[in-house]
Design a protein around this nucleic acid. Sequence first.
DNA 1: CGTTTGCTTGATACGTATCAAAGTTGGTGG
DNA 2: CCACCAACTTTGATACGTATCAAGCAAACG
Lengths: 247, 247
Amino acid sequence: MKKAASSRSPSQLEPVKREMVQAMRGTPLFRSLSDEDWRTVEQYLHAHIYPADTYLFFQGDPPEALYIIGSGRIKLVRHTNQGRDVVVTVLGPGQLIGEMAIFDGRPYSMSAITLEESGVVTIARHDLMNLIHRYPLLSLEVILELNRRLRLCTELVRSLAVDRVEQRIARALLRLKDLGGVPGPEGRGVMIDIHLTRQDIAEMTGTTVETAIRVMSRFRKEGLIQNYKGRTILLDIKRLEALAGGR
Amino acid sequence: MKKAASSRSPSQLEPVKREMVQAMRGTPLFRSLSDEDWRTVEQYLHAHIYPADTYLFFQGDPPEALYIIGSGRIKLVRHTNQGRDVVVTVLGPGQLIGEMAIFDGRPYSMSAITLEESGVVTIARHDLMNLIHRYPLLSLEVILELNRRLRLCTELVRSLAVDRVEQRIARALLRLKDLGGVPGPEGRGVMIDIHLTRQDIAEMTGTTVETAIRVMSRFRKEGLIQNYKGRTILLDIKRLEALAGGR
DNA sequence: CGTTTGCTTGATACGTATCAAAGTTGGTGG
DNA sequence: CCACCAACTTTGATACGTATCAAGCAAACG
């Protein structure tokens, strides 16, 4: 599951990072800033590149920075004392990580782990708090992002509470498609362009690997999905949506 | 389950309402305001009193106001297309309802239903947006409240994903104790001073009435809890916490 | 009072976890 | 290039937890 980490020399890396920071300009969090304010803000941003399967931080760590995803997908995982982990959400470019801990100062309630090589921009907690006070509009964007997350989380609660595994997995696949869907090879279906193990699927839907595998196999046999080099292609979205029980 | 609604005459009601608005001054949302700013803000507040089992709004309604609980407890319920409802959270005095819908303008994602007679203060959506722009500190408090909710929601997801019903119910009881716990009669244990049906418990924990009843009965037989006039008394919190699997 | 609403218990069926074992894949180093 | 190793996938047999269906009971209500 490991990917070849990009091996750029340090001299090549700097321009890449400067580019990453620049790209943040168009991100929801910063789009409301004037050009002048942006020039101030951007000085506090730091760019990082992480290989696949890397922890940005661990559940329980003290909050140090806000992360904004530039590229790649990152999962938020809640660990349990019994070793069974739960993937609460998968986030993509433009989304925030660690806002909760940053604002209330309590330890991170989950771990953040890259699913693929990812570019990330950070702001130190102290700097962010200063910026928020200077540019109150930033906090409105934070509120909107928290909103989005709370809505997703609520829907996940509902699904876990009343749906069975089959419906939960169908839902998860559709959600992943919305996050990182690209046209499949030869234009057939939509491919979820993230390398996910069955274990990941299981942790996203509150079930076990074996059950996740059985359901995915059934989906494959029924022509709903197809495997392709470790990715999943959704072949029949209509039927998946019907299975998920309406969206 | 219905409670006698307070039958105050209109002439008596006005002073009560004025008092409710005044009480908002000490609430997290407004505590950071200066006295001067508060005098401006309070003009936009409206007080209401709802009897038990009353809908503040329905899932799907367009967002019209932000609600701040003055007294009483209110549940947020997510309805499903199959008639099985899910109680996502129970809120008490000082907490906000409807922030999500207010800020992103999308319909309420859940219904809000009073569990007992409740006093509530509202701000019209339009007024709130104006106030937020004038007093940016308000938005920080909104962020903190959203944080709290997201942490709770995440924990609920984990619990639904990996715990069995027994643990989930133990957890739910402990959470309710934190929200509305009072010393039990004769000083024995801690009483959850809300009238909850077994159906409510089931909807909070993603199970059925029958199963909720069986688990609660077992708890009672084992001396963990006790019923008292439609309330639940927690007799052995240590053991409940152990059952819930650590907090 | 009868009626409704909530509580309780029992019998049975189904979905999913668990345990076990073998097959597959991709990467590594000889 | 092949052999090997580790990680991931797959399939089967079995056990357990919980939903479902059914029926009786108690308390509150009009």
